[in-house]
Amino acid sequence: MIAVADLNKAFESRIRLGIMSVLLVNDWIEFVELKDMLQVTDGNLASHLTALEKLEYIQVRKQFVGKKPNTSYAVTQAGRRAFNEHLDALEKLIKARE
């Protein structure tokens, strides 16, 4: 079990993995789009987004489209690095098992 310690606890949940995967390959993604893609409830998604934001893995942009508030998310440099390290660790784990 060499690489388990390298796995980032912040990405243990399925939803956070989903959020990071989507944000890594897109510029800015709106809350609603993220919700549709990941098929989760508002509250669930919001709490995971807040957690990732606190870790400074994602950044938030709030705008108004007409009178409607519109929130978009993007990955930060730190988030990109952390997630890539997490993926590397996952890959090592798989290779170690083979």
């Binding site: 993995l17 989903g18 995967s21 989507v22």
Partner: peptide, 14 residues
């Protein structure tokens, strides 16, 4: 499983 899921999401969203 995680890696497969990540890849699928990246593909589908971009």
């Amino acid at each position: 499983e995680t890696l497969t899921e990540i890849r699928a999401l990246m593909e589908r969203s971009s």
